[in-house]
Write a protein that binds this DNA or RNA. Structure first.
Lengths: 129, 129
DNA sequence: GTACAATATAGAGTAAACTCTAGGTCAAGA
DNA sequence: TCTTGACCTAGAGTTTACTCTATATTGTAC
């Protein structure tokens, strides 16, 4: 199946403007119809979903672009592409650890607030007996 | 102890410009000396470290500002502040889940690349016997 | 007492990632 | 045939979070 940009925008949740911007940045370069209109394929869909996950885990557009341009060259660039993913993996592991740590801090702080709020509202205490 | 902006910048790793910008945004408003110079305290240090963790886990400046302005009002705003932290907690939990999921995908993809790279380099295979 | 380092303010500039506008083409339905 | 809606390009505008510049003042070392 082939999809015009409007349809593809709906399918991906990305705006038409964003899709054109991604093309300008070489992230995803769809085929064109004879009349010059963009024609996205199933494989473009799989690819944009991967891009969306990279984006969603904070890979900057520049890095995604780097990966996309290597991908466009073909099989000879697999070692470099593996390296980019490997680096991103390390970034993700660190991010998870950092978020987990801050989540623990946040939990203590919320508990502290709960205690203080209790102290400020004796009625609530009475109601809870 | 009191710290001038240069010292405080060193202690926090934030540039002097950033500290002034944070003040303009009401995130952290230090005392002033008689001559008008900023004077940061120990409690400013604890507070900026908390701000840094919020920032580091992607809370936007606007939201931190909201929290900071409630904090500046005092004890009467505890319920609202608790609510902001509670919301951020949920955001963090979702972020961790999302990152974890993408990490798993990434691991499969890296393994796939490893296989393909192996196939492309038979010498490596021989060397591994 | 003079140089110089640190501080002050106001406001301009920057990078990233969109987002929108203007002006134009083109195919299909009333 | 005409108009409407989807598409096209080039380029301007926006938001966030800084980052830098210009200009002025002040406190300390020689």
């Amino acid at each position: 199946m082939k999809y015009a940009i409007g349809k593809f925008s709906e399918m991906t949740g990305l705006s038409i403007h964003t899709l054109r911007y991604y093309e300008k940045e070489n992230l995803i370069v769809p085929a064109r119809e004879d009349n010059g209109r963009r024609s996205y394929s199933e494989s473009d869909l799989t690819w944009i979903q991967f891009i969306q996950r990279l984006k969603d885990t904070d890979m900057p557009i520049k890095k995604i672009k780097e990966y996309a341009e290597l991908r466009a060259i073909g099989n000879s660039t697999m070692v470099q592409r593996r390296e980019i993913l490997q680096q991103h993996k390390i970034i993700l592991e660190r991010a998870i650890a950092k978020f987990q740590e801050h989540l623990n801090n946040l939990n203590s702080k919320i508990e502290y607030y709960d205690d203080e709020i209790q102290k400020q509202n004796p009625e609530t205490q009475v109601a809870n007996i």
